[in-house]
Design a protein around this nucleic acid. Structure first.
Length: 190
DNA sequence: GGTGCGATTGCA
DNA sequence: GCAATCGCACCA
């Protein structure tokens, strides 16, 4: 039985790679306007670690859009890509060191519809830009301990869709639960 | 004020 | 393989 204890502030105030690894098996929770709560287990994430990371929105410095990334860990960073899809990130680390973890897939059927891929995940959880900057310790969006996964079940690969990032594109900053069918991405990199 | 493109998705 | 679709970063 997965734990429903909420992840607390110290969980988020660590390095993005540590948080990313540790987010696998945790449970993303979302309270809808009608009171219903959606829950689903996280199976795929990517770390975006600091200003030096050429794949990160923080690489070009702080802007109104990426402001949440520069805050202390434990809040959301949500943005619109390709004019139509949202991406949900968990902000990590300390204030002033921009870092976040992109949630790329959860396993159904908890959320009711497919949540494989960052855009679909946001659609399934009704997460949009209104949620950017919101606390992950509050009543709208939060994470629960769930069932952490052991090292043998964690696979690392390069991140998806960041080929412009030079050397950083090759770093193994994507974490997936090994052999999990709901991971996203071209040819379902496992 | 103009321009180019993206941490994606779905369909041909 | 590629169109959809628009906020925003960047340059002028």
């Amino acid at each position: 039985m997965p734990s429903r204890k909420r992840l607390r502030r110290p969980f988020y105030r660590r390095n993005a790679l540590q948080v990313a690894r540790d987010l696998l098996g945790r449970v993303l929770c979302r309270r809808l306007s009608d009171g219903q709560v959606l829950r689903a287990r996280i199976v795929e994430v990517e770390a975006y670690d600091g200003r030096a990371d050429r794949a990160s929105h923080a690489h070009r410095g702080r802007t109104p859009r990426n402001l949440p990334m520069f805050e202390a860990g434990g809040i959301a960073y949500v943005y619109l890509v390709y004019g139509m899809h949202h991406c949900f990130n968990v902000v990590t680390g300390d204030r002033g060191s921009p870092a976040a973890v992109l949630l790329r897939a959860t396993e159904p059927p908890a959320a009711g519809e497919p949540a494989s891929g960052p855009g679909r995940l946001c659609r399934a959880f009704r997460i949009g830009r209104d949620e950017s900057g919101c606390s992950l310790l509050g009543r709208e969006v939060w994470l629960e301990e769930g069932s952490p996964v052991g090292d043998r079940r964690v696979k690392r690969t390069p991140r998806i869709g960041v080929s412009y990032a030079g050397d950083w594109a090759r770093r193994p900053y994507r974490f997936v639960i090994r052999n999990h069918g709901d991971a996203s991405g071209p040819r379902r990199l496992r």
